[in-house]
Write a protein that binds this DNA or RNA. Structure first.
Lengths: 252, 252
DNA sequence: CTTTTATTATGTACTTTGTACACAACAAAC
DNA sequence: GTTTGTTGTGTACAAAGTACATAATAAAAG
């Protein structure tokens, strides 16, 4: 019933369940199949009430004219998290940005150059706060809705990260990283509606956020809006960190 | 401000933002730093009202006498998910088990044999349903509470998967994979209390599960219990799949 | 066989949260 | 100044969560 092992950590064993210890760990690792690891960043932005992703044209002949994510091979002795930070910094000049590992993708045929496993990271940043200075490979913000036919398996990665985002903005206030420091409640609601793809009641949305009591009234108002300006708020991240809900109560 | 790139996807560019296409993707990948990828499975079980993990003694001299997770290198052309399934099958003989990717660990010094990135998988299975036939490397169920000083960074991996489990059993009925097919409500509550580390009100716990309306009364009762036997229930996974809550309403 | 003990099973009162819906105040545009 | 669109504040009701009590049942003890 159990398949034979051709390969792997586990060495031959003697009947009593004892183990022969491996002394030369290095040769063990050296004999592993050859492959490479990359990180790919799904960088979300929010502009004109639309969710966007930062993309470039592939520089591989095999994917000519296809859109791809920003990614890179991890370097010697570089942690995955650091590699993702580096990619983000190199491409956007931004640091201290919300960035989190989502999951790995390992399809054997996903890279034309050989076996490449990638770890997807999702990142959220305020488009208005950072003008793209680099335009290599047509780097630009691409609307998530009109996105298809990407290079590699990047469409699949984007889809997975989008689902991740939808879930996460409901559990954590990370969606606020997509907005400027000061924002109106309307902007906040637009963000949630766009990402979740739902319509929310304006009054209940307000009530919800006010009763959470993490919004700080800046005393300022919107400017240059073609209607009655709304109040501008900041999010009290410090208070949130202190008081975040540790919820019990089963919920499915 | 932007650091130089020594390595990576991105080729030299000409000033107008155009790109030189790379035709030989293979040589690109071949020049990547050498490393290996493993999967490590955190296999949870529930026994005597205690959460346990399936562990073995390390077979590496460097980690002599340390406990480690069940893991293996991924093979040529093998998906990560398949590798995790394989490890589970090889070690426990079980198939069709709940198993999900949690996250990757990439600390440069985590493996004495060289650079090894691992992808952690968490798995849940009913201890009683499967007697361990293999005892190589002292394979056994280890109580989660009395666990420290593991080989590699495996303690860190276990901790991350435990947090993942705590979160997931509240959002999905996957905790039921730790129990037999038929279970009493007391067993179910013990499971939740043990994993979450809380005490729950018995009456409200029942009400919660009954109003969800996913429990099927089997008509059978507990046997061999030293007190009044309780009813045995099954979980209606099919109904759950049809009706699972798509929750809106922001929640932090 | 009766009593004690532990556990199952069910219900009620109250609080908090979520949902549907209405109206007045304000600023800009005509 | 009137119209128009948006902001800002409630209110009434429904649903879900929480605290708490008591009866029924089976095993164990006497």
């Amino acid at each position: 019933m159990l398949p034979m092992k051709k390969n792997g950590h586990k060495p031959e064993t003697v009947p009593e369940g004892k183990t022969i210890l491996i002394k030369d760990a290095k040769s063990l690792v050296d004999n592993y199949p050859k492959l490479a690891i990359t990180v790919d960043c799904v960088i979300f932005g929010f502009e004109e009430n639309e969710l966007k992703v930062l993309l470039i044209r592939s520089d591989l002949e095999a994917f000519r004219n296809k859109w791809t994510l920003l990614g890179d091979i991890i370097r010697d002795n570089e942690e995955l998290d650091d590699a993702a930070d580096r990619v983000l910094l190199e491409r956007t000049g931004m640091t201290d940005v919300f960035l989190e590992q989502v999951r790995s993708f390992s399809g054997p045929g996903r890279h034309p150059g050989g076996r490449v496993v990638t770890v997807a990271y999702a990142s959220l940043l305020d488009v208005g706060h950072h003008q793209l200075k680099i335009t290599d490979n047509e780097l630009h913000w691409h609307p998530l809705n009109s996105l298809k036919d990407m290079g590699f398996d990047h469409k699949q990665i984007v889809d997975a990260c989008y689902k991740w985002l939808q879930k996460m903005i409901q559990e954590h206030p990370m969606g606020l990283n997509l907005l400027p420091d000061k924002f109106s409640l309307r902007e906040l609601q637009n963000l949630y509606e766009a990402i979740l793809g739902v319509e929310l009641d304006r009054r209940n949305f307000r009530k919800k956020f006010f009763t959470m009591d993490f919004l700080i009234d800046t005393g300022e108002m919107e400017v240059d809006v073609p209607h009655r300006p709304g109040k501008l708020y900041k999010f009290n991240f410090k208070k949130y960190e202190r008081n975040k809900k540790k919820w019990f109560g089963i919920d499915f």
